[in-house]
Amino acid sequence: MYQRQLLPPYRCRKRWDVGRRVLPFVFRQRFKIAETWYPLWSPWDRLLEQAGVPHHFFHKGDTILKVKVFAGDHLFVDRLTYNFRRPKRGEILVFATKGITDPRTGQPAMPQDQFYIKRMVAMGGERVQIGNDRHLIINGERLDHTTPHFENVYSFDPRQPPRPNQYSGHVNGFIAGQVIAPLFPDESTIFAVRPNHYLVMGDNTMDSYDGRAWGDFSRTNVIGKYFFVYWPFSSRFGWAAR
């Protein structure tokens, strides 16, 4: 005779911990079954949604981002000339960024431990405008391709729109947008350069972060004059360009 034995029912004891936030939108909590703890994370497919940021799901092989990286020029700097005279309009200066601030906020306009290279377009006491024709106006006088050191800058075809990486003059905020030239929103805006200060702008006007965004800087920031590019071996290699 067989006796049927009933086993006691399996008792599953559950316990939860209080959990903790690992990142602003990632929450980790553990639960215990019997003697084993198991982690529970916020669903990964909802993390961006919980963070409140725009998101998109990509599949294998999709292109997410395309960028181009350009190495900076390596060059020699003439640190002697400006000990005997002041910079002239149109000369290309190498200057330190220390102390350059955004005039709208008073905050540093860029990293304060770097050296920039730009073309000097105006000096202390001058009043500067950028016309819609992409030419600078200094104290009421329009610069053009006959102005010394601006032969290439104003060699563009006015029938063509401004383009990155090409000489296209100088653009104001009306032409290129306020992000590029917040201090020159239109051709009627006049920027007054402070005494003993310089205003510089880049030749690649559509991509240059320059005085149109952060104004002028003290002449004590000037390191020297652009002299000779020794790397890379490109169209910019050689003695100082105009």
Rank of each mutant, 00 (worst) to 15 (best):
1 M>H: 13
2 Y>A: 15
2 Y>D: 14
3 Q>L: 12
7 L>W: 01
8 P>D: 15
10 Y>A: 14
13 R>S: 07
14 K>C: 03
14 K>W: 08
14 K>H: 02
15 R>L: 08
15 R>E: 11
18 V>Y: 07
18 V>S: 13
19 G>I: 10
19 G>M: 11
22 V>W: 13
23 L>M: 10
24 P>Y: 09
25 F>Y: 07
27 F>E: 03
28 R>D: 05
30 R>T: 09
32 K>I: 04
32 K>R: 14
37 W>Q: 04
40 L>N: 14
42 S>I: 13
43 P>L: 15
44 W>V: 14
47 L>A: 06
48 L>Q: 11
48 L>V: 06
50 Q>F: 15
51 A>D: 09
51 A>W: 12
52 G>R: 13
52 G>N: 14
53 V>R: 06
59 H>E: 14
61 G>Y: 08
61 G>Q: 10
62 D>R: 00
62 D>V: 02
65 L>R: 13
65 L>E: 09
70 F>M: 08
72 G>A: 07
73 D>Q: 11
74 H>W: 09
75 L>V: 02
78 D>F: 00
78 D>M: 01
79 R>K: 15
79 R>T: 15
81 T>E: 02
81 T>H: 02
83 N>D: 00
83 N>Y: 00
84 F>K: 05
85 R>T: 07
85 R>C: 03
85 R>S: 04
88 K>R: 15
88 K>S: 09
88 K>Q: 12
90 G>N: 12
92 I>P: 10
93 L>P: 08
94 V>S: 09
94 V>G: 11
95 F>A: 03
95 F>S: 03
98 K>H: 09
100 I>Q: 06
100 I>V: 13
101 T>M: 01
101 T>F: 03
105 T>I: 04
106 G>C: 03
107 Q>W: 07
115 F>C: 10
115 F>I: 14
121 V>Y: 03
122 A>W: 14
125 G>H: 08
126 E>A: 06
128 V>Q: 10
128 V>N: 12
129 Q>N: 09
131 G>T: 02
134 R>V: 05
135 H>K: 04
137 I>H: 01
137 I>E: 07
138 I>G: 08
140 G>H: 04
142 R>H: 07
143 L>H: 15
143 L>T: 12
144 D>S: 08
146 T>H: 12
146 T>M: 04
149 H>C: 08
153 V>D: 06
154 Y>H: 03
154 Y>E: 05
154 Y>A: 00
160 Q>C: 04
160 Q>N: 06
161 P>L: 00
161 P>T: 01
163 R>P: 04
165 N>E: 11
168 S>N: 08
171 V>A: 09
171 V>T: 15
171 V>N: 06
174 F>D: 06
180 I>V: 05
186 D>A: 07
186 D>I: 01
187 E>H: 05
190 I>Y: 02
191 F>H: 04
191 F>M: 03
191 F>G: 00
201 M>H: 05
201 M>C: 06
202 G>E: 12
206 M>E: 07
206 M>V: 04
208 S>Y: 13
208 S>E: 07
212 R>M: 04
215 G>C: 01
219 R>C: 15
220 T>R: 15
222 V>M: 10
223 I>N: 04
223 I>D: 06
225 K>E: 12
225 K>A: 03
227 F>H: 13
229 V>Y: 00
231 W>T: 10
236 R>S: 12
239 W>N: 09
241 A>G: 14
